[in-house]
Design a protein around this nucleic acid. Structure first.
Lengths: 371, 371
DNA sequence: CCCCCTTAGGAAACCGGTGTCATTTATTGA
DNA sequence: TCAATAAATGACACCGGTTTCCTAAGGGGG
């Protein structure tokens, strides 16, 4: 039965439909001790593998009858094209990579979910790569990561996304990438931006509207773009409401819980004591909670606290934390869509800027100042 | 220059070393407009691609000099084997999958890290697949996930790991898998078990030693094996210390923050009010915090609280939460190692049971009862 | 009736590796 | 000196798809 389909040339016409059914029904009894290949499908359908390939790839120029037969057989024997073989022929891996060093686990998991939502529709899968910018192998690991599975594209999450050397490596490898960041650091095609200014400005308005004047601010580490954005926007929005953030009311933290405690301790032992503190992320806000509770300062009666990120901890704290929601899942989805379009169209499209906007979520930790 | 290496037969001996250097130096000037392939390396080294293949795969039976030359050229032109081609020839993808539906993001990220630590050493990469057991596409999605990239093995995280239908799908696909669970549900080769009994027993001892007698317990959802384990072990360990957990002091939660609040409300409005509450995970413990604070019950003075998991929230809460640490990263590493050994040895080895033990971490939320 | 165009489908090469088996050379023992 | 043996390497098929190029049949117009 090797090549017995060969003498069958040309296009058989009318009268074939009946035969189709027979073939299809008979084929059910066929069994294999290995995963079926395109050759098995071709043999059972009495066509060449190229025709099967055409059906798989939705090529036009395939007779409707033929297509039906082939699809039926594919279904029956449970044929799935080998990704390795496809990849070899297509020069593609259908794999996207996610490079991250962000310590916020929920953020990462949300991004993964968003990325996968887009991947699923396009037949891509996601390979993950946690990394550490401080490691001496950082760049080399990233390079190997891309090369080892020949990734079609890479999504880079902040703060790693703000590392210019990493981007250089990706560019040298000829690997398409999309960076996530609070500001545009690259061509629009390579960026998905999250607008932190919006959220920070909303917080400023919110605090001003509540009547706070003595406001403390815990900034993020200055090397992070998001920290810079949040700070700038918060300060200028406050100013536009006639409130000036005095320098001694600003502390720079490291986006960690412990740094939040330290900064809060400094702020809360100053005179006049701030009636509200805006921490640049929820982790640090949690640190403020701890410090306030330790100092016997009641939240929110004596102290309003606002965070940023809307991480799970925001609702676990008591009272629940007013914060800013960063739609991480959307961020991941947008990045993946952008990447996939560029990969599929095989062009450098996608020059339009894309991004998401963060919005404030008011909860229990923010109230008007006492008295 | 196609096959001009052909006349060069046999094993060239002495006097070659000098030539090596020449070749190596000359080769630097070679440039290509496409990624180099094994053929390029072979041509430059004046050997057949098979020999290059041997060098790549660490085969013995390659002359030391030849190996040096080839490695030098590989280094110089930056050759990396195509994973698609290797996969096709080896019938392997060098890809592991991680199937998860656990809502604890930190747990997932830690597992990923552990898995990748093992993967890196063996040249594997990790593809992720978040899923939802309640979705009607759950099983089909999982099947496609494995088939689409022809995964060499899959690691399944609880609670999805406890789904017998999912395991059946994996088995039918002939896909090697390792399940993570609190109890062994399968052959030892397919399991990595985390011992929750140990941690729960330690908590019982701890509370007994502190002098607590009126103890409340918030169980996890009974369909989770871990919930069952934690409960059984806690109850029996308490009993061995002469303490009986009365039925009205046990509430069943859903491993969620909200359910923790609800259960805590019930427990804390009973007489006699418990002096300690053990929640089956940190999420629910956080719910207990919130309820206690709402009811004006001081932690830990009036109420000792203990959780389970040692998630980030445990240290963010104030006072910090005594809990049980589940070494998720080790869990991931063990699972990946087990899988990779079986894949590489191409056998069904690994019949030894492997697992990790959870241990209690004492923090500020547990103290002796008042009076 | 012939020619050309369109549509359907096939043969063979190719993608970049690995497996099998044969071949060459040096070494060793008789 | 001459097999026999071991070490090193090459030729070629093969993994399972896709691309390129080509053929054959049917339809329409001259």
């Amino acid at each position: 039965m090797t090549q017995d389909a060969a003498p069958r040339r040309g296009r058989p016409r009318r009268g074939r439909a009946a035969a189709i059914q027979t073939v299809a029904v008979e084929a059910v009894t066929w069994t294999l001790d290995r995963p079926p290949t395109i050759n098995d499908v071709a043999r059972l359908a009495h066509v060449s593998k190229k025709t099967v390939s055409r059906v798989i790839n939705q090529s036009p120029f395939v007779n409707e009858e033929t297509r039906t037969i082939i699809n039926g057989i594919i279904e029956q024997i449970g044929y799935v094209p080998s990704p390795q073989a496809r990849g070899l022929a297509f020069q593609r891996s259908f794999l996207l990579g996610l490079v991250y060093d962000n310590p916020n686990a929920q953020f990462i998991v949300n991004i993964q979910e968003g990325v996968l939502a887009a991947c699923r529709l396009a037949g891509f899968e996601l390979v993950v790569h946690p990394c550490d910018q401080k490691s001496p192998h950082f760049l080399n690991d990233a390079k190997q990561f891309v090369q080892r599975q020949n990734l079609d594209g890479v999504i880079v999450v902040p703060p790693a996304s703000e590392n210019p050397q990493l981007v250089e490596v990706l560019r040298d490898l000829g690997c398409r990438y999309v960076r996530l960041s609070a500001v545009s650091l690259d061509e629009a095609a390579n960026m998905v931006v999250y607008n932190d200014r919006q959220g920070a400005a909303e917080v400023a308005e919110h605090l001003a509207a509540l009547g706070h004047r003595d406001i403390g601010f815990i900034a993020g580490p200055s090397r992070h773009r998001s920290a810079h954005e949040r700070r700038e926007s918060f300060v200028s929005a406050l100013k536009s409401h006639g409130i000036t953030l005095r320098p001694e009311m600003v502390e720079e933290g490291a986006y960690t819980f412990e740094s939040g405690e330290v900064c809060a301790t400094r702020l809360l032992t100053r005179e006049p004591r701030p009636t509200a503190i805006f921490a640049s992320n929820d982790e640090m806000a949690a640190g403020v909670y701890k410090t306030a509770q330790r100092l016997g300062i009641s939240i929110p009666r004596d102290l309003t606290i606002v965070g940023f990120d809307d991480s799970p901890i925001a609702t676990r704290l008591w009272p629940s934390l007013t914060t800013v929601r960063l739609p991480a899942k959307d961020l991941g989805r947008l990045a993946a869509e952008k990447l996939i379009i560029r990969i599929s169209s095989d062009e450098e499209e996608g020059h339009t800027a894309t991004g998401v906007v963060s919005r404030m979520v008011v909860r229990e930790s923010s109230v008007p100042p006492r008295g």
